[in-house]
Design a protein around this nucleic acid. Sequence first.
DNA 1: CTGAAAGCGCTTACAG
DNA 2: CTGAAAGCGCTTACAG
Lengths: 363, 363
Amino acid sequence: MVQSSVRQRVNRSKRLVSIKDIAKEAGVSVCTVSLVMNNKDHNRVSKAVAQKIRATAENMGYKPNSVARTLRTNKSNALGFVTDEIATTPYASKVLEGAQDAASKLGYILLTTNTNNDAELENQEISALLRYNVDGFLYAMMFHRKVDIPEVLEGSPTVVVDSEDAAGRVPSVYPDDELAGYDATDRLIKAGCRRIVYYGSATPIVAQGQRLTGYRRALAEAGIPFDDALVVEVSEFTNADDEAARVFDEIKPDGIFCFNDVRATFIYEAARERGVRIGADVSVISIDNQPFITNVIKPSLTTLELPHYEMGFEAVRQLVAILDGDKAVADLESDRSMAVQRQRDGSKTALRCRIIERDSIVS
Amino acid sequence: MVQSSVRQRVNRSKRLVSIKDIAKEAGVSVCTVSLVMNNKDHNRVSKAVAQKIRATAENMGYKPNSVARTLRTNKSNALGFVTDEIATTPYASKVLEGAQDAASKLGYILLTTNTNNDAELENQEISALLRYNVDGFLYAMMFHRKVDIPEVLEGSPTVVVDSEDAAGRVPSVYPDDELAGYDATDRLIKAGCRRIVYYGSATPIVAQGQRLTGYRRALAEAGIPFDDALVVEVSEFTNADDEAARVFDEIKPDGIFCFNDVRATFIYEAARERGVRIGADVSVISIDNQPFITNVIKPSLTTLELPHYEMGFEAVRQLVAILDGDKAVADLESDRSMAVQRQRDGSKTALRCRIIERDSIVS
DNA sequence: CTGAAAGCGCTTACAG
DNA sequence: CTGAAAGCGCTTACAG
């Protein structure tokens, strides 16, 4: 069936050079080699011997066998990355990228698995990773919610990504949706808006409540009274058109804060139909930063970016801190994670969303 | 720094129950247990003893230790998944999802890593996976091109995903771009179009050439003469607007086959400015199926979907076939991979792109 | 039908 | 400063 299997040499018998080969070549014992290879030779192995061992290891292209080390030490330097469903949202897979970068820098590798939102499969997959002796888990969700940590994970250090442990026990890294709501609203206020619609979500997910809270806080700070009539509950699949029409025909705001980029497209369409010019007659801001939307619609959409990459990166940082101590992660700092403001509350880490300025706000 | 580390118990000393524990409990030797656990007890262990062993294993919650097995057998049942850059294209991460599903069904796990298109980093990352004794590699690219397989991969069975090995040696799984060009053009012809523009890419990537070839084949089969003036070379970042204008003002086609959904948005914009009604006055089809584009623009865009999930799935199938033989993958069949038409040419597998019917073609 | 023994590559007390 | 020995959990000839 697969014809190429003939052509491609399957070299399973290949053995990498081992500590034993080096010991033989250098004329010492394996334990001396082990000491040197682990940099534990100070005051225990003579400089000359150590140097000779290092040289022969180099020459022979020695690479330590992680499997053997794991078996012996019960420490794999491997992390399990468990997702409910990869990439239902585009760019959510940036979480994995951030996690991979941090893991790589800290000397860890990632074993990834996908549970398809199926509890039984989830159990199986996690059990499989456990058999490979992973040191800990990233439990990564596709959007911000309260989750129950599966029982199989008990006993393994775990960090939740893009969600919060409902029980409040497992450290969780997620976007600061309250601050995002505040920042978005505040941006409109700074642009001179006084009558600001929150074109929100009809689904009571975590982000909806928190962004609304941030919206209210920004209004309060600016001395603008909160008006319930300016809060619109929108479902992408049912009332988005009608509510967008109502926003322009009845509410007539000078600023609109959209729950996400997809919802913003309905506002754009309604504005276009009415000849209302976004970025000139009315200001619009939203959350998500899906370039295929934000750059394609005219005028391009100012929006806040969810810190997917940063969540993955930060979650690994915290997990390794638990595993190996804070010193182990002290040197870890990425340019991209610099952009993130940490706001710690016990075991929870909320990451700030960066604003991406484009052309939908009146200047 | 991470305060939760205090609260969360790090249970590294925890040992899972081992074969030895079962042997002791059941009053037999470890090798007998091993035989039974691997279902190699037929005619070698008495039924009674085998059953007793199975029962105690069940009771004690025994899970075989993959690390120990790997060390002993030099077979890890782990695959390395190497990408150049995760998710520059949204939904490209579906490749990983497909790979994970197939791997899971075949009893494999995935170690994933990201090379950020950096040759040195790539080497390091692959070496790291090698130390974990992966049995083979998926070398997954983010779009269809000819790639050179890195030297470190030599000696390890490898399958290329969403690209072709330039040397033609390593099996490769990628989208059938010629057929996609044919299918898209043919769909327009079937809708009655006779003057069909190929609004293609200015960059000479593999997909561009192959889709153009498919476009020409469809025209030829329908007896429509090829006209060079109907082929437009478009860059998203420079001439897309101008060329879209030219399409309507000078070429005046009855059908437009766009290289991808992003380019289609320029056609939509130009049509709108001119009052040309897509789906009524002119038919448009494209390739990619980015729902944030295809469902949001009006009328919704008929497009061909790149088989990301299927490529990942199929690549794992082929890799495991190389590793364990065709019989090992005989039972593997996913509903989603059913949709794919296999067209084999030596070590190459081109997967057909499915058409997603929406409202941009005149009916 | 069952067990004793060796060994995969490594680390870690321990002895000298 | 260096080495002999045990052992992580498993599998695989081999002997009986």
